[in-house]
Each structure stands twice: as C-alpha cells, then as structure tokens.
Computed example of a mutant assay.
Amino acid sequence: MAEPIDSALDLLRRLNPKDVKKNVDNIIELNPSLEEELLESVDIPLSVKRCSSTKRDFLCCDYNRDGDSWRSPWSNNFEPPIEEGITPSERIRKMEIKANEAFDVYRELYFEGGISSVYLWDMDDGFAGCVLLKKSVKGGSWDSIHVFDAQDRARTAHYKLTSTVILSLGTESEALGGLDLSGNMVRQIEQDMAVEDDGSHVANIGKMVEDMELKMRNLLQEVYFGKAKDVVGDLRSIPPLSQTNRDRQTQREMISSMSK
C-alpha cells in the first residue's frame, strides 16, 4: 500500500498545475499530518507579505518560514512577530543583505517590476540559501525559486544550484475563447568558482542564477510557447471557415485544370 505522501504527490502530478496551491491546501485540510512534507516537496507560487518595519514587500517560502511566521529579508524580523525565530549568523546575514541589494537591481533590470527576496542560512561546511523572484501581470505570473548551497574550499567554493520556474498564463475573450498555459520546469547545475572574500560568493551566485534564468526562459519559450503555437495552429484557423473553404475549392480547381 502506498504511503499517504506518495499518493498525495502522485495526485498533484495529475491535476492542473495552475491550481497547485489550492490543491495542496485541500490535501492538507484532508490530512493535516502531511503539511510539512508537502510544503517541503511541492513548489507552489510564491506568496507576498509586507514587512511592518520597512514597509517593503517580501516573498514567502518554506525557507524563511518558522511555524506560521515568515522572516523579512529587509529587517530580519518575522511577520507576524514570534519569539526566538531562527535567523542567520552575523556573517551570513551581512552576505544576505548584499545579495538582496544585488538581486533587487537584477529584478528591476530584467523584470522591470516584481518582487525579489534572498534568504541565507548557515551550514557546517559553508552556507546555503535561496533566491526568489516573482512578477505578476494581468492573466498570469512568473515565479522562480533558486535554491543553492556553497561548500567552502581553499580559494574556491563548490556551488550546487537547483532552479524551479513556475509559469502561469491565461487569456479569455469572445473572439479567441479561453487559453490556459501553466506548468513548471526544474533544472540543476554544479560548479566550482574562485572565491576571494564573502563578496565573491554574492557575485558567483548572481552569475549562476542569471545564466540559469536565461537558459530556462529560452527553454520555456521553445517548449511552452512554440508547442502551444503549433497546437493552436493545427486546431483552428484565423480566417473564417467560408474563406478557407473557398481557398480549398480554388486550389482543387487549379490542380484539376493543370492535370488536364
């Protein structure tokens, strides 16, 4: 007999990815004991909270969550406030501040809006973290989640990056009808890079995330949009059916006259 968590994940794979957040909430309501495992295993669109200290929005995920509260990267405080929440060490927090400043510039240049948040935490042989980016537009959203760990070595560091992009787009009109394009893509890479100081870590992570996002955007354009264009083109024609039939009749007549 399958374990409940395996059955839940198997069910989620068969449901519309656009509704993953609602489906996860419904499964947790049916079986609250699966909450922690589901939140750790399933990528859902990022939610947004407002930092009460800085009045800036930040993104929420399992990596800045402590119970029912989330840590703001801008103030290092939890929303809503809790006692003795888990925060990074002083060294890691300084890197976290620099990383948030860097990716805030990246967000504005590449996304021209949206929200970014970076969270770092300590590990025995280095540190780990995640870079979150979200851009919402009418009818859809782009959520990217980049989780990495950095293992310190002599003058170098070994980075392992796992990137997930959650794309949701939809449109509906009387002329075209409804179209929903939703799904996610996961890619992973490992790389050794030179390190001089903690600032090098921020630059290295920034380069890896930038390169990965570019590759994944190109793949999404090819896989999602290219395939959708081919399918729609095969299923429906833009000209009216009467015009299409006249064109076909003209084509048949030309072929018939040429054969004679």
Rank of each mutant, 00 (worst) to 15 (best):
M1T: 02
M1G: 06
E3F: 06
S7R: 09
L12Q: 04
R13K: 12
R13F: 00
L15Y: 00
P17Y: 04
D25I: 05
N31D: 15
L34N: 01
D43H: 10
L46I: 01
V48S: 07
K49A: 12
K49I: 07
C51F: 02
R56V: 01
L59K: 04
C60N: 03
C60G: 01
C61T: 08
S72R: 04
N77I: 06
P80R: 06
P80T: 06
P80Q: 00
E83L: 12
E84P: 00
T87C: 02
R93P: 06
N100V: 05
A102R: 14
V105P: 01
Y106R: 05
E108L: 14
S117R: 05
D124F: 03
D124T: 11
D125E: 12
F127E: 04
G129R: 01
L132E: 03
S136L: 07
K138E: 11
W142G: 04
S144D: 06
V147E: 07
D152E: 10
A157R: 04
A157C: 02
T162P: 05
T164S: 00
I166T: 00
S168Y: 06
L169S: 10
G170K: 01
T171Y: 09
A175S: 14
V195K: 07
G199K: 08
A203Q: 15
A203G: 07
K215M: 13
R217T: 11
Q221D: 15
Y224F: 13
K229I: 08
S237K: 15
S242K: 11
Q243C: 04
T244V: 15
R246K: 13
D247N: 10
R252P: 00
M254W: 05
S257F: 09
